[in-house]
Amino acid sequence: METTEQIRERILASLPGAQVSLVTNPGLAAQHSLLLGAAHALQAALLLRDDAALRLDFCSNVTGVDWPEREVSEADPTAPGGKVKRVVPGFLEVVYHLYSVALGHGPLVVRMRTANRSDQVTLPSLTPVWRSCEFQEREVFDLFGVVFAGHPDLRRILMWDEFKDHPMRKDYVEPDDFEWEPTPHGDVLERARRHYPAPARPAKEPAP
């Protein structure tokens, strides 16, 4: 298969004006990915599927990643102390892993990002391109709260319909429903302390 950079150029040649950037993977696996802008994502996906040299006809895996807002410190010689703190806004990310059954290559990793984590969470659905996205995009909608425009049946898939939260987000607070557990595990003991406040000091020790 062509390198990710070549595929990016191929997309840009067919879709001038499309936002496609390369996201390098610093890990040992070095599976680099393409970040697609939401505006042209559907056309780019069709191109990836139908281009004679790529023919990525098999979308294997679709998943979401939550990137909450975080603070990074960057080197800045002008600032006092030589460092400046900057807040990176949070976003939700959807990752697609594409393979080609016809040509036997892959994976190509494609990502899309929302503008933020609260109100601008709509991304185009790629279910019209690959049918296998249908349930997996529903799962991303359910667990991460990404809304897929153009999805044929966007409902919660794993949790019940009345459920309000998106549990795979990093800031999800789960219901506090395990009361006590006899383990020395630090978190669990902390919970136990919260549920069972220390008993009031007895007035007097009863005589034996």
């Binding site: 993977n25 610093p26 890990g27 040992l28 696996a29 070095a30 599976q31 294997s60 895996n61 998943t63 990643v65 990752v95 892993h97 994976p107 990793v109």
Partner: peptide, 24 residues
């Protein structure tokens, strides 16, 4: 503690492609 990065890896399970996607 693997180096920061991500991987998608798959094998042919008896039911089909069982894969794991990990971000470190």
């Amino acid at each position: 503690r693997p180096k920061a990065g991500e991987v998608y890896s798959r094998i042919e399970g008896p039911k089909g492609e069982i894969g794991f996607f990990l971000i470190s």
